[in-house]
Amino acid sequence: MTDSVEMFETIIDLTRSIYGDGFIPLHRPVFDGNEKQYLIDCIDSNFVSSVGKRVTEFEQKIAAFTGAKHAVATVNGTAALHVSLLLAGVERGDEVISQAVTFIATCNALSYAGAHAVFVDVDRETLGMSPDALRRFLAAHVTRRSGQAFNKRTGRRIAACVPMHTFGLPCRIEEIVALCRDSGITVIEDAAESLGSYVGRRHTGTFGKMATLSFNGNKVITTGGGGMIITDDDELAVRAKHLTTTAKIPHPYEFVHDLTGFNYRMPNLNAALGCAQMEELPRFLAIKADVARRYGEFFDRHDIQYMRAPAGTKSNYWLNAIVLDSLAERDAFLEYSNAQGVMTRPIWRLMTRLEMYKDCQHDGLENSRWLEERVINLPSSVPDSAIVAT
């Protein structure tokens, strides 16, 4: 245990060399650009809710940055995923394949749509859905009827697949999309954590039919609370904006709604923050890449597994992650680091270990369970750039 404590101390020293003294949060927002001015402009214009030029501007900036044809802003990433599932044709009683290594919002969105979650395992190298596990599941449990996939065990239609780019590390999304295409399953990428991550030169979130982003307070850029649907499909983009705007038919004064819609549009105030944050995004990503480099070099020297972007991909390193040797070591480090004022956390508890999703079908989740016992997130904020080595 003495050796472990010495190693823990060394990790804390490294973290403080990056972030300084005092309490170090896991990921804090940085507002040192035009955020205040854009908010003041918003207030002065009186357009503070979901009607305002900053909403459209933010959507255009996200579309341009990701290379998606369309972007539709929402109040949060969960709302974005909920609407995406509906746009993909997911109906109450359908099944959606996802991963048990994820934040609860992914599964909550499935529940909002009335869908049943089915979980396949992840890769240890990416923490994202494993195409190998997906291939095995499809071969063992899926039959095709009239071009659609059905689960042979439950008889339910499998309407969609939602893989996630965990902590900003791109999963093997091209293989997943190909498998689902062959099975008649729509892919919606949960790219909530991967703004600024790429597979080759292509941004995450542009491989599936749609994808969702999150701008929560702890993301690479933040709008306080907010999300986005991105897609290349013209019709889906129009429907997304319609559904998230209470399905109101545009009219100067009449209130006519043709569907059960949702009050999910992002307010102009939040979008103003987003526009200012987008101006800083390249700088944020460059600094975070340098933080990741310093972490990586340190953990290589000490023979501790540091989670890097797989070959041929680029990560935004939203949350830096290491893999320790055991559950006991994980828990000891969590207790030690947090007691020292350095915030660390374990990976999320597996969805199948939560009461709401404990009875969902899964494939054994061998890698997921292994990772749950070992993965730790380290502080990953954008620090003062003067502190970061160049």
Rank of each mutant, 00 (worst) to 15 (best):
I304L: 08
M351Y: 08
A286H: 13
D300H: 06
K314D: 07
L334N: 06
V342E: 01
R345G: 01
L350S: 01
R330M: 13
H302F: 12
R294Q: 15
Y317F: 12
T352N: 12
S326E: 06
E335T: 14
P310D: 00
R330K: 15
C360G: 08
I347N: 05
K358Y: 08
L350Y: 02
N320C: 11
Y306C: 02
F298H: 13
D290E: 15
L324F: 04
S326Q: 03
R308C: 03
P310V: 02
I287N: 04
D290H: 09
P310W: 00
T313E: 02
F299W: 10
L334Q: 08
W318L: 10
V323W: 03
L324I: 06
R353W: 09
L324K: 01
N320M: 06
V342C: 09
D325S: 15
R353K: 15
D290Q: 15
Q361H: 10
K314W: 14
S337I: 01
L350H: 05
R349G: 00
E335Q: 12
S315P: 12
E297D: 14
D290I: 02
L327E: 05
D363E: 10
R293V: 04
S326H: 09
T344V: 15
Q361K: 12
L324S: 02
F333A: 01
L285G: 08
Y357E: 01
Y295S: 05
A286K: 14
I347H: 02
E335S: 14
F284P: 02
R349T: 09
F298G: 09
C360D: 05
Y357G: 03
D300Y: 05
Q361D: 13
R353M: 10
I322G: 05
I304R: 12
R353S: 06
M351I: 07
L324W: 07
A321T: 07
I304C: 09
Y357D: 09
H362M: 09
V342Y: 03
L319G: 01
F333I: 09
Y306V: 00
G364C: 03
Q340N: 09
M356S: 13
W318H: 12
F284S: 07
R308F: 10
H362C: 07
V323R: 14
E297C: 08
F299R: 01
D359K: 14
F333C: 01
C360T: 11
T313P: 00
W318I: 06
R353E: 14
D359S: 15
S326Y: 03
F298S: 11
R294C: 04
D300C: 04
L334S: 00
I322Y: 02
Y357M: 08
N338L: 10
R345V: 07
I287R: 00
I287F: 06
R349P: 00
E297R: 14
P310E: 05
S326C: 08
T344E: 10
M343P: 00
M351F: 10
E335W: 00
Y317D: 07
L327R: 10
L350W: 08
E335H: 09
A311R: 13
T344F: 06
C360V: 09
L319I: 08
F333Y: 14
A292C: 12
L327W: 07
R353N: 11
A328I: 07
